[in-house]
Nucleic acid binder design. Structure first.
Lengths: 373, 373
DNA sequence: TTGAAAGCGATACCAG
DNA sequence: CTGGTATCGCTTTCAA
C-alpha cells in the first residue's frame, strides 16, 4: 500500500526531461522556460513530490547559520532561553547548524546593531528578542524581504514581517494570577494593584486586561487599581509603589508582571504592610528565592525561558528546513512556582547551567558570542 | 577552525584498510577479526568519528517501526498522549517513521498481549503505558535483551529494563497541591483528605508523601488524613469518600490525585458539604469542566498528556537514532488549570483534535490501530 | 576475513 | 535554456 515516494527522477521521466531541469524548476533557479517550469510544478504536485531531506543535507554543503539575538544575562532568564536554543539545536543531529549568539546589555540598546551584524554575517535565520520593536522594524523587514526567516521570542514585533512568535500566553498569565489572587484572599475585600512595564506594549496591556476582567467577573469584592508602569527600572517601580501604598490604605494584593518585584517588596516592607499583602510575581531569579521561601511572595508566574528558547529554535528550523510557508505563533502556558515546588525549578535551572558548562568543554571551538554594548 | 568531520574513509585510510571493514567493525557485524575491530574502534574514537546521519538515512532503507501501547481513550487523556506522539514523529521529517498504535481498554487488561504483538510485528522501539508493571515486566525484559528500546509514559515500570521514562513529577504535583490547599484555606484549620488509586504504586505513594509533608511543614493548622484508595473505580471512590465525610465532620479540603473526581464531588454534593470544601483535582476532561467553571473545583493539576507523548517519542528517537546509551528520565512540571485559564486549555485540546482529524484525511493509509480487548 | 563497488536522492557544475 | 554527471557518506551486496 505504501507506494515509494516520488523522486526528482520520477518527475523527470514523466515529462521526458532531465533531473537537472526539474531541480531548477522546483527551486525557481534561473534558466528554465516559464512553460517547462509550469509543467514541472504541476506534475510534481500531481505525483505528490516531497523532497528527501536526508539526500538534500547530504549533497548540499550548506550550513544553517542561525543568529540568536537576546538580552544579556542580567538575570538568568536569557541564559536559559539561550540554553533552550542550544539544546533544541543539538536535537537535530543531522544538520550543520551554526549558532551565533549576539547579546545586548539593556532594553533598546544595541539591538539594531546586533540585528544588522547578523544580517551582515549572512545568517540565514534569526531568533530575536525585539526589546523595542519600533526601532527594529526596518531591519526586520529587510530580513523578510531577503527571505531570511525571523522568529521573535518572549515579545512580538508587530508589522515587522517576522515569520513566527513564541511567547507565554499573556491572557493565561493575567487570568491565572487574578484567579489565584482571589482565592488566596478568600473572603477579604479591598484593592489589588498590578505593575507593568509599559501599557504601550501590547503584551503588558493584555496581561492587565486579563487580570482586571478576571478579577472583576470572579471576585467582585476586589477592586483592581489602575496599572503602575515601571518602564523597566527598579527605581520607578519602588517609588510608584510606595506612593500607591500611601494613597491606598486598603491594598490587599499586588501582581507584579515585570521583573521589578524586589523593589515592590521592599517598598511594602518599609511601609510595614508586607505581611498583610498577597504578592504574586513573575519569573524566578536568585533574589526572589528567599522571598518565595519565606512566604512573602505567594506565587510566581514562571515564564519558562528554556521552553521558549526551544520552541523558537524549532519553529525557525521548520521555516528554514521544511520550507514551511506563512507565519506561526505559539503561546505557552506559564508554570506556577510556590514554596511547595520551588526546589524542583531551582534544581532544573542548575542542571541546565551544569549541562551548558559541560557542553562548553566538549566543543573544541566555542560558538562565537558577540556583545553589542 | 572548523575542521571537516571524520568519515569512514578517513578511518579506513588511516588504517590502510577499506571502508567496508571499518563499517562492519563499527557495527560489530560478523566477519571482522577481533584485532582489526579493536584498531578500528580506537582510531574512530581518536579521530572523533560521528556518523553522518543524513547519509545513513539516505542509504539504508530501514524504517523505524514504533509501537505506542496505551490505554484506550476513555477520557481524552490518552488521545492527547497519542496526538503528542504523532506530532513529535512528524517533526522528524527525514526518517521513515512507521507508527503503530495499540490500545487496551482497561488497566491491566490486554497490555501484555499488546506488547507481545508489538514484538511480533518487529517494532524496533516501543512507547508504553505500563498500567500494571508487574505483569508487563517479563515482556519488557525480553525487549531489552533484544535491544529494543522501551520508553514508559505516565508511569514507570521498575526493574523492567526500560530505557526511559517520561512522567509528571509526582513530588511537584503533590506539593503544589498542598501549597495551594493551604493558601486557599487561609486561616481555616481542619482536616484535608487525599485520594489515590493504590498506595502500592510508587507514583501515588510519592504524591501522597509530598502532599502530606508539605501541608505539615507549611500549614500546621491542617491535618492530612490517611489516603483513600479508589483502585481505579468510580464506585469505590464514591463510597470511600462518603464514609469519610461521615467520620470526619471538620473536613475542609480534598485533593483527588486520580481521575475519579466526579464521584468525590457527587458524594460531597449529596452530603451538602460541597460549598465548604476546597477541592483540587487532577487532569482535565469534559465532565470536570462545569465543576471548574462553577468554582466547585478550585484548581486541577493538569498532567500535560500531549507534552508527555511528545517527550516520550523524542526520547525513544534518541535511543533509536542517535544510539544514546544508558537510561533517561524526564519529569515534567504539571500545569495548573483554574477558572481563569480554563478556556485556554480547552481550546488547545480542541485544536489538537481538529489537527488530528485533518491529519487523518491527509494520510491515504491510516496508521494501523489495533485494539486489544 | 576482507576489498571493491553499486546504489540512496538531491545539489551543483559543466558542456552542449 | 537544457541534459548529463560527479559528489556527499553510508549501507549492502558481491567477489576475492
Amino acid at each position: 500500500m505504501a507506494k515509494e515516494p516520488t523522486t526528482l527522477l520520477h518527475i523527470a521521466k514523466a515529462l521526458g526531461t532531465s533531473i537537472g531541469t526539474v531541480h531548477r524548476a522546483l527551486h525557481d533557479n534561473p534558466g528554465v522556460s516559464a512553460e517547462t517550469k509550469a509543467k514541472v510544478l504541476e506534475t510534481a504536485k500531481n505525483l505528490g513530490y516531497r523532497p528527501n531531506l536526508a539526500a538534500r543535507f547530504l549533497s548540499s554543503k550548506r550550513t544553517l547559520r542561525i543568529s540568536a539575538n537576546t538580552l544579556q544575562g542580567t538575570t538568568s532568564f536569557w541564559d536559559e532561553v539561550r540554553a533552550g536554543i542550544r539544546e533544541a539545536a543539538a536535537s537535530y543531529p543531522l544538520e550543520n547548524v551554526e549558532l551565533e549568539f549576539r547579546t545586548y546589555p539593556h532594553i533598546g540598546e544595541g539591538e539594531t546593531e546586533a540585528f544588522q551584524a547578523a544580517l551582515r554575517s549572512k545568517a540565514n535565520g534569526i531568533v530575536v528578542f525585539p526589546s523595542s520593536a519600533q526601532a527594529l522594524r526596518p531591519c526586520m523587514r529587510r530580513a523578510a524581504r531577503a527571505g531570511i526567516p525571523v522568529v521573535c521570542v518572549a515579545t512580538d514585533a508587530p508589522e515587522s514581517g517576522r515569520r513566527g512568535i513564541v511567547a507565554i500566553d499573556t491572557l493565561v498569565s493575567g487570568s491565572i494570577a487574578a484567579d489565584l489572587m482571589g482565592r488566596f484572599l478568600g473572603a477579604r475585600g479591598g484593592a489589588v494593584a498590578i505593575t507593568v512595564s509599559d501599557m504601550g506594549i501590547s503584551e503588558h496591556a493584555e496581561k492587565y486586561g486579563a487580570f482586571e476582567s478576571t478579577v472583576r467577573s470572579l471576585y467582585p469584592k476586589l477592586r483592581v487599581l489602575k496599572p503602575i508602569e515601571d518602564h523597566g527600572t527598579d527605581d520607578e517601580a519602588f517609588r510608584s509603589f510606595r506612593n500607591l501604598l500611601e494613597e491606598c490604605p486598603d491594598l490587599v494584593g499586588v501582581y507584579v508582571t515585570t521583573e521589578a518585584s524586589i523593589p515592590v517588596l521592599q517598598a511594602a516592607r518599609e511601609a510595614g504592610v508586607l505581611a498583610g499583602l498577597t504578592v504574586i510575581t513573575t519569573d524566578l531569579f536568585p533574589d526572589l528565592v528567599p522571598e518565595i521561601r519565606s512566604g512573602a511572595v505567594a506565587a510566581t508566574i514562571y515564564q519558562r525561558p528554556r521552553a521558549q528558547g526551544e520552541m523558537a529554535f524549532r519553529m525557525l528550523h521548520k521555516f528554514m528546513v521544511e520550507e514551511a510557508k506563512g507565519t506561526d505563533a505559539v503561546a505557552l502556558a506559564p508554570h506556577l512556582v510556590m514554596r511547595g515546588n520551588l526546589d524542583f525549578f531551582l534544581q532544573r535551572q542548575s542542571q541546565e547551567l551544569a549541562k551548558e558548562k559541560s557542553d562548553a568543554l566538549h566543543h573544541a571551538a566555542p560558538e562565537p558570542a558577540v556583545d553589542f554594548a
